[in-house]
């Protein structure tokens, strides 16, 4: 067993520098690496590019980095829940690349599986296709999209073991698996870290080979963005 554990979030974020590109898992506030985001805020890392489906809300998730103007560029598919984001984007303070959600996921998946580029029909005939190579396959037009390049992938899982194997829960899985192994270094934070041998290998979603560092997060707020319920 190759042990991937690090003591805490500070050790886990060793080597991060201003101007780097980070991938961050999560959909909305669901399945985001909360402890790592807090550490990025604490270190006041500057001028970073973030690849993340969303940008958090004003006072949670990536919204915390936005508020402190730490983000130079965001690469996302949907940023509608964040007023500060919209302000920085419209004023030109922050660069934004909007990417169709499936393309965003596949550009992560391509990066981690050694596929430099791929063709997808998503965005053909729209401004997303501008400047991109197009090609017809089976009578349908496609555009070429490239794998992302990132310095770090920051992901969050439900359970993990010392070997870096990960299991996700519910829809908190989302972008996390595709980002594992997509950046040069993948750091996983988990709610529960167990010794090797305690996870059933049949149930592992992401094998430890895609993870370089793993730690148990100190605490999880797991904020709900839109609470919708019905009466009993």
């Amino acid at each position: 067993m190759i042990n991937k554990t690090v003591a805490n979030v500070r050790e886990a974020c060793e080597g991060i520098e201003d101007g780097m590109t980070f991938m961050l898992g999560g959909f909305g506030l669901c399945g985001i690496p909360e402890n790592i985001i807090n550490e990025l805020v604490r270190r006041n890392i500057q001028g970073v590019t973030c690849i993340s489906n969303n940008a958090g809300v004003d006072d949670f998730g990536l919204g915390l980095l936005l508020k402190k103007h730490q983000i130079k560029k965001m690469i996302s598919s949907y940023v509608g829940e964040n007023a500060e984001f919209e302000r920085q984007m419209l004023s030109g303070e922050m660069e934004v690349e909007l990417v169709p959600q499936g393309t965003l996921a596949q550009r992560c998946e391509a990066a981690r599986t050694g596929i430099p580029a791929f063709f997808t029909p998503a965005g053909y005939g729209t401004e997303v296709a501008e400047g991109k190579e197009t090609r017809e396959f089976n009578g349908k037009m496609h555009i070429m999209e490239r794998a992302f390049e990132a310095d770090f992938s920051f992901v969050k899982a439900w359970k993990g073991d010392e070997a870096g194997n990960l299991i996700f829960k519910g829809t908190a899985r989302n972008f996390n698996p595709a980002m594992c192994g997509a950046g040069k270094i993948t750091v996983a934070e988990v709610e529960e870290l167990v010794p090797a041998g305690e996870l059933d290998p049949n149930q592992v979603h992401i094998p430890g080979i895609f993870v370089q560092r793993i730690f148990q997060g100190e605490k999880y707020e797991k904020r709900i963005e839109q609470l919708t319920v019905r009466k009993k």
């Binding site: 959909f27 899985r173 919708t228």
Partner: peptide, 28 residues
């Protein structure tokens, strides 16, 4: 409600018998 169980509108939801979860790349 479970914060780890939402729909694409970020609303809390439930999973019915026979449901499955998967990652974004598989979803698309």
């Amino acid at each position: 409600e479970d914060p780890d169980l939402i729909n694409a509108g970020k609303q809390t939801i439930t999973a019915l018998p026979g449901a499955s979860f998967f990652d974004s790349a598989m979803s698309f």
